[in-house]
Design a protein around this nucleic acid. Sequence first.
DNA 1: ATGAAAGCGCTAACAC
DNA 2: GTGTTAGCGCTTTCAT
Lengths: 344, 344
Amino acid sequence: MGKVTLKDVAKVANVSFTTVSRALSGNPEISNDTRDRILKICEEMGYTTNYIARSMIKKKTELIGLIVPSIDNPFMSELAYYIEVTARRFGYNLILCNSHPDLNQEQKVMKLMIGHQVDGVLIIPQKPGSYENLKRYTALIPSVFLSENLKDQNGSYISVDNQRGTKLGTEYLYRLGHRSILYYGCRTGSTTHQLRADGYIEACQLLGIKPNIVYFDSVSSSIELGYEMAHKALEQKRKITAIFASTDSNAIGLMQAAREKNIRIPEDLSLLGFDNIRLASLPQIDLTTVAQPKEEMAVRAVKMLIRKIEKQSTEPSFEIIEPVLVERSSCRSKLFEMPLTTQT
Amino acid sequence: MGKVTLKDVAKVANVSFTTVSRALSGNPEISNDTRDRILKICEEMGYTTNYIARSMIKKKTELIGLIVPSIDNPFMSELAYYIEVTARRFGYNLILCNSHPDLNQEQKVMKLMIGHQVDGVLIIPQKPGSYENLKRYTALIPSVFLSENLKDQNGSYISVDNQRGTKLGTEYLYRLGHRSILYYGCRTGSTTHQLRADGYIEACQLLGIKPNIVYFDSVSSSIELGYEMAHKALEQKRKITAIFASTDSNAIGLMQAAREKNIRIPEDLSLLGFDNIRLASLPQIDLTTVAQPKEEMAVRAVKMLIRKIEKQSTEPSFEIIEPVLVERSSCRSKLFEMPLTTQT
DNA sequence: ATGAAAGCGCTAACAC
DNA sequence: GTGTTAGCGCTTTCAT
């Protein structure tokens, strides 16, 4: 198991180990003959560079830490995929840690990563309190938060324009003829959710319709929660013609509850989601939704982090990504319902 | 950004840096006074151990490499979640790489991980050829393959008992009264799929019913493929009463095709899957399936790898996990259809 | 064009 | 108990 080192190669090639190092690093101050000869010997002996040793000197590991609440969440695993691919494209590898179940754990893995000398950290925060929780460490090392607005706190982040997203969605429903739109599942205590609700309210005011919001008093969204809370919301049914769910998960949970109540989507009720998780595109779901462009977010987060690493900067900066409406089949136009006579 | 080192602390504490090292490592050959004093100074100065430097000497990085085809696949991200949690419980961290799109890439990331001096590698193989593809490197470093049978090739692996799984499933359908069961989506060229088909055939022979298999000529399963291939398979409808899909993805794709053809599941057709991916439990899907116990597989894979690391062993070994039938609503009993008179 | 030597931050073996 | 020294595998001066 003893790995082949520069010294081993040097011995065989009858040169100093410095020369071998030069051959491998493409240093020009070496004759082509020796370089070729050495490279061939390296290949034969199965030499592999020890990045650890190199890091000691270069003070760079080419490692990026990725902290996610839980990688088995489809939204996060998709982000993680694009992050890994992008990072590797720029020569960086990923150390992955789940920060669940609590802020303590999140701190612990952050410390761990710093100990491993990662060049920078990408954090998908676990809770609204995550930024405060990690502040002490993000000051030490280039860090970027992903997917949460850090409004008013001076950290770096990439986030979708949540407010614009709900405004967009509300306008879309309005254009389809909906005038009584319920906003479903605003999580109290989350900046992101606050912004989403704000966008909805703003659009309502602009369009002259009355806002109607169902709040959730929980720390995370899930299909189960969306299902449980749905029954209450669906009681309002007579009045409302469309529901704008704060997340796709909530929407999908509600979808199930609606089915049990024999409320057809979109015939009886239009349903709009937010996030565009994978599930939304499943034929059995086919949910119209306001998409967070995951690939773009991941790519920009990695690029921002690498810029910070290269400048050794911990200065805050941020980028806001435009959301995109993805039309599927869960919303229908109410316009065709109007009797033609009204137009004459 | 210059991090605090042992030397820095030593200077402040007025001791040699060895003493500081001893204080931190809990070495007993040191007075309580100095230890406490030093620990306090470390805390104040914000010292963090440089694992990189430690690794150089210990020749252990406490890092495990995880190679997955694509982390955004829900099955894999779920496995990855349990792997990370288990690994960290044993003091190991994870380096994550996606091996897509090809065997070349898989080799590249494997080399990379070895370069980073990971203590061992966990591989979710990309293709049947992956083992052969990585052989050269798995010989160098403790490695465990996960989720693929490596029958006849001498590598280490953890896999569900695929053959037993399909036997189990077929028997289940038989018990429900099905006698004409189509096996849907056997991928040619995959050992795993071969074993699954074998289990189905074996059960059929034991039960005295005729095997009926639809083969897929592709390298991976997906909902889309399951959907596309379904139309042909559903033509056989008159004769068959149940379909056993080789994977949940295939089952879900077929489900959609069935709906378009107005074939009701389970009323007109029973459907059984394999894997128990997250989607299967979605209320809108609710697919009965033969589950791969993901958590158990992940835990056992990590434990096996750590055992190898501790023994510095590259000897092959394997563990086969028992599949579990998860009943949901996509299969129905045909028994009640039989007129009672037949029993008199 | 090549070699010798220093040193990255740490642990471990050996003195005292 | 504490300090001294060597050295992990590599890159990077500085000589030659």
